[in-house]
Design a binder for these strands. Structure first.
Lengths: 143, 143
DNA sequence: CATTGACTTGTTATTCTATAACATAAATAA
DNA sequence: TTATTTATGTTATAGAATAACAAGTCAATG
């Protein structure tokens, strides 16, 4: 959160009350949340209760690298390493729906090579893996 | 298409008329298509004209590796290398919406390493990169 | 201070995407 | 044949996202 404040201040963009609260909500939950879920929380705190309120705040966060959008789940999650450029990898558990964010330099390297080879300019990317986290795998093996 | 027939026959699954036609439609278009777009074509060919008709056929194709789902576009595209296991990478041009499917072994290696390190069982994954294809970049630079 | 212009928020309405649930029909197995 | 599974068609509904407009806020300039 402090990082987010520093970053927005440095870039001269405005972390307004709704946006700030939306980020806090994502950070507090420690998981990916749907826009409607975020909206519900926002409206409880006195902000508007129509979809655009949530979508605009979330879009802003994604736009400025403070949050990620998990396409597969139609959900959003706070970025755990804002500021520094990275090729985030999301490990999505189909058992409990938890999302872990990781990433490696070797992956980034492989992607950069690929972009060079195909002459494609990559501006933004996401790697989403669906599977089972250790806990859910254990549960499934047991049954 | 011939590959698809061989594969379904080998696996003992049924490539029924709707499914077959859906795959043909994807193959003919050489691009990613929305479910509704596919539905329209299917209904023109005498199949049902309600959403589930398209979604079921497309889900089947994705399930069996004959097509991919491009999350970012809410669209589907035929797989260009069905059968063999791969970590497909989609290069999505934000200018013309064309989608190129590539992939490298080094990428797959990096992802496998990641999965091992986090003890996460990856069952399925997709890498989607958004950016500009050579043609659209040239057009943008010119303006 | 007043006013301009850019940005932000709230609201209404609508569009697009996807699935649940059920009835019917076809294919496979016993 | 009969039973069982699998697939299709249809109705209805749920879920996700955006367009368009009105109103408010804010900083900067004259």
């Amino acid at each position: 959160m402090a990082t987010a404040e520093r970053q927005t201040a440095a870039e001269g963009i405005r972390l307004t009350p709704v946006r700030r609260r939306a980020l806090e909500i994502l950070l507090e939950s420690h998981r990916a949340m749907g826009a409607c879920e975020v909206l519900e929380r926002l409206s409880q705190d006195g902000f508007g209760n129509q979809p655009p309120v949530a979508y605009r705040a979330l879009d802003f966060l994604v736009e400025h690298g403070l949050a990620h959008r998990i396409q597969r789940l139609n959900a959003y999650a706070a970025c755990h390493a804002p500021g520094q450029p990275h090729a985030p990898v999301f490990l999505i558990c189909r058992g409990c729906d938890k999302v872990a964010e990781t990433g490696t330099d070797s992956l980034r390297g492989a992607l950069d090579d690929l972009a060079r080879a195909s002459d494609f300019t990559i501006e933004r990317m996401a790697v989403e893996a669906l599977g089972l986290c250790p806990a859910c795998r254990a549960a499934e093996d047991a049954s």
